[in-house]
């Protein structure tokens, strides 16, 4: 397992206010890590610091040299004055050929959207196109910031199934922020619970039973966690250990 990304003693400020302190984080290839936490707990700031969009106040982020990152933002508002077809959007910033567009959209489960305008897509289609674009660079690390915010529960569940399928196929690591606690907890290898700092972390089971987590989210997600528990589909590239036994 190679280390893709490492954050050391990170302190982050947003508009002059410290939002996150003492963050130490290591991401290894192939793992799915989920960040949970209440609003304003510094989740998005952490992701922005990891992709290099937010300079840390103190501490440092080191990336594996030449790390390919696919990023799906929390929400992307496209100004209606900007005409943009799905195919053209996929080719930003690097232009791609027609067949690559077709394959990417097929993989994302939205094969016929290439000629449509981005602003005409439904919420679910839009998220899938964003994911398709993030996957085009063949990322080693996929970062998703509350990517299912605009989706209903079945939509979100199918979106996460797709993320797992992608991980199984490509072996990329996944780092995501989410509010869909039960779904996400079930699909993650490791969970970080943020509230101004990392208040607890570990496997979903460990975090779900941690007093810090329960103080923030209550115990309501425990039952749902068991309900949504399912077998991970392991791809040939996936050679790391999972701690499933605790829940099963």
């Amino acid at each position: 397992m190679t280390t893709l990304l490492e954050a050391r003693d990170l302190v982050l400020a947003y508009q002059g206010k410290t939002v996150l302190r003492d963050v130490n984080l290591t991401l290894a290839s192939g793992e799915i890590v989920t960040i949970v936490g209440p609003n304003g707990s510094g989740k998005s700031s952490l992701l922005r610091a990891l992709i290099g969009a937010l300079a840390p106040l103190r501490g440092a982020v080191t990336r594996k040299p030449g790390l390919r990152v696919g990023y799906v933002p929390q929400n992307l508002v496209i100004d209606p004055t900007l005409p943009l077809t799905v195919a053209r959007f996929l080719g930003l910033p690097q232009r791609i050929g027609r067949s690559a567009v077709r394959t990417a959209l097929q993989d994302a489960g939205v094969p016929d959207l290439g000629g449509q305008q981005m602003v005409s897509l439904s919420g679910g289609q839009f998220q899938r196109v964003l994911l398709a674009r993030a996957l085009l660079s063949d990322p080693e690390l996929l970062i998703l910031d509350e990517a299912t915010q605009s989706l209903d529960q079945p939509g979100a569940a199918s979106f996460y199934r797709q993320i797992e399928a992608v991980r199984a196929r490509t072996g990329c690591a996944v780092l995501m922020v989410s509010h869909d606690l039960h779904v996400v907890m079930a699909a993650s290898d490791r969970v970080l619970c943020l509230n101004g700092h990392i208040c607890c972390e570990g496997t979903p089971e460990v975090v779900a039973s941690a007093p810090e987590y329960r103080a923030l989210f209550g115990t309501g997600t425990q039952g749902a966690l068991a309900l949504y528990r399912h077998q991970h589909q392991h791809g040939p590239e996936c050679d790391h250990d999972h701690v499933h036994e605790a829940a099963e």
């Binding site: 496209i78 910033p93 690097q94």
Partner: peptide, 21 residues
């Protein structure tokens, strides 16, 4: 052109693709 378009769409997304917005 392409970098400008990316930065216009989303500075964070551009940054993740290696474009400095």
């Amino acid at each position: 052109w392409s970098a400008l378009l990316s930065a216009t769409l989303s500075p964070d997304m551009a940054r993740a693709s290696g474009v400095d917005p």
